[in-house]
Design a protein around this nucleic acid. Sequence first.
DNA 1: CAGCGAACAGACAGGTCTGTCTGGTGTCAA
DNA 2: TTGACACCAGACAGACCTGTCTGTTCGCTG
Lengths: 186, 186
Amino acid sequence: MGRTRPGDAGAKVLKAASTLFYRDGIHAVGVDTVAAEAGVTKAALYGNFGSKSGLVVAYLRERDRQWQEEIDRITAAHADPRERVAAVFDTYEAWLSRDGYRGCAFLNATSEFPDPADPVREVVRHHKTALHSYLRAQLRHSEPERAEALADELMLVLEGAAVTSVVAQGPQPFHTAKRLARTLTG
Amino acid sequence: MGRTRPGDAGAKVLKAASTLFYRDGIHAVGVDTVAAEAGVTKAALYGNFGSKSGLVVAYLRERDRQWQEEIDRITAAHADPRERVAAVFDTYEAWLSRDGYRGCAFLNATSEFPDPADPVREVVRHHKTALHSYLRAQLRHSEPERAEALADELMLVLEGAAVTSVVAQGPQPFHTAKRLARTLTG
DNA sequence: CAGCGAACAGACAGGTCTGTCTGGTGTCAA
DNA sequence: TTGACACCAGACAGACCTGTCTGTTCGCTG
């Protein structure tokens, strides 16, 4: 009884995978579980993504895409580059709060995939590079010659707040992070 | 042919577990592999640690103990509190370099064990709390009333450098981190 | 209305995981 | 010398993993 239109299975699998992989960890979740949660058969899952690795990469790409949309929203909502930087910190904090403080999905994936040559790690590098570029581009307006170094520093603070929030089980580190970011950006 | 003295098995297992768990990830390494690498039977492993979870906790406790020794060495080698803080950053960087940029074992374990109530997570919290306390204690000498906030900030920078080094596949982020730390501690 | 593609249902293979159990072997201490 | 103890060697159970396969059913398109 295929009560859904063809082509929907991929999206449903991706949504279920996103929830389960993020919440429980990638290695800890089997494809059977993902398929069941998505209300889809394993055959449909493999037909859409080829393998579990393929699904994992798709999961991270989708997260990156969503984050990119968030960045676009920030850019549209704030004209001042310094406000945009602040909004990045706020958004990061809001994401972590919404998702129950399990930290950055990309850093978690990095912990689970030790091989730097793994496609998963390439998606992570792409994501982090894009974030760094965005920060640097914003900082170029106010501090042209310090933009690169400042972006490096803000990335450290941002990542530090993300992982520390998990250990601390709460967003308190973001108060520190935002204060520090304000100090640095002047 | 028991060619080693009784009581050695536990230490050999712990050493093998430390190498394998850190390098490949905890979930990715089976107890058979650990026992084989240690040159010990599975029965001996279970006799010493009770379960894989028990072994994982022992592995992290051992890492914490080694780190504590490092802290003691730093304290003995430097009388100036500010030098001690700098030495913590250097030591962190050296550990990561030695271990092939797989990051902080405690943060990696946090990624693999989502449940905050898990004994593994308690060891992680203990470790991070101890480090924060040490930094705060040192900072109290030079900046009594800012010690707490400064320790918070340095922790963010330190953790940020640790995870960013993994993504970047090199210790470059520690240059940024140490520069930032020097700026903050004045 | 005919046919094709996509999903369904569910069994199946082959491997790995944690954890246990039996029986043999070596060492040390009483 | 005897007995306790820690370990070795390796089989075993039961669960779970990824990935494949057969056959069926639905909806869309030509």
